[in-house]
């Protein structure tokens, strides 16, 4: 009986949290048109979330690509088809690893920064001060950060995939001796626009989700040091789980 009650309460809390997220998302979307006349605010956030994450994204892309080159070569060699390494690396990166790993890194680097920044603004009354100056914090603070993340994420994922392909080429062609002609020509022949689009759609969806989760957690953080810390942690944990879950759903739909 106790278990049933606990389960019911837990389910109720989950439904309430999902509902709160949905309502918040609607409020953010409704405030988007009001924020568009100020592109400078959005561009500043593309810089904050995107440009400042570039180094970690590029480094990670390179290493993931290099691992992919090693593992891919080892695997394909067993079937005598190591010339397909370019295709395998490109498809893995464009369709899956690029969007997913970038989203996880984005949640860890930019998402936590967003949640902590907004949470601290809440704790130090900056959001309340804006309200008192008749400025809607949702329009002035939240929407530019949401849009910044939404724009930055697909760009970061594209850079990750490109650097990753370079890393795979570095290992496969330069180190393992795969023929460069085969590596590039097979990749060009096999990769289609649809594959690139699949990655682009995924990364845009992940960008929207990670940004929304980060700004939601920051905006609703308790105005204490512990509250801000908890919001930051929740932001990265929820984003990571949701990205992996939605990745499966999107893959199932788009395959």
């Amino acid at each position: 009986m106790r278990l049933a009650t606990d389960l019911f309460a837990s389910a109720q809390a989950t439904v309430r949290a999902v509902g709160a997220y949905a309502l918040f998302a609607l409020r953010v979307l409704a405030a988007v048109p009001g924020a568009l006349p100020r592109p400078g605010l959005v561009i500043a956030q593309v810089y904050n979330t995107g440009a400042l994450s570039l180094v970690i994204i590029m480094l990670s892309g390179l290493f993931v690509g290099m691992v992919l080159g090693l593992q891919g070569f080892d695997l394909l060699q067993r079937f005598g088809s190591e010339e397909s390494l370019g295709t395998a690396a490109a498809l893995s990166l464009l369709k899956e690893l690029g969007p997913v790993v970038t989203a996880l890194l984005f949640a860890g680097r930019a998402g936590t920064a967003l949640a902590a920044e907004i949470g601290l603004m809440r704790a130090t009354d900056q959001l309340a001060a804006m309200e008192m100056m008749a400025v809607d914090p949702l329009r002035r603070v939240i929407v530019p950060r949401f849009l910044g993340g939404l724009i930055a994420m697909p760009l970061l994922a594209a850079i990750f995939s490109l650097i990753g392909i370079f890393g795979a080429q570095l290992i496969g062609v330069q180190l393992m001796g795969v023929d460069p002609g085969h590596f590039w020509s097979q990749m060009r022949a096999a990769v289609e626009v649809g594959d690139v689009m699949e990655g682009a759609i995924k990364s845009a969806v992940f960008g929207a989700l990670c940004s929304l989760i980060a700004v939601h957690e920051g905006y609703h953080a308790l105005p204490t040091a512990e509250g801000v810390g908890r919001a930051t942690t929740r932001s990265v944990v929820i984003s990571s789980v949701i990205v992996l879950l939605v990745d499966y759903l999107l893959t199932a739909v788009m395959l």
Binding site: L120, M121, T124, D125, Q126, A128, A129, M130, M132
Partner: peptide, 12 residues
């Protein structure tokens, strides 16, 4: 209306 918050609440 204008309001002065306890710690100023300046935008950092």
């Amino acid at each position: 209306m204008g309001m002065l918050f306890q710690q100023g609440a300046l935008l950092t």
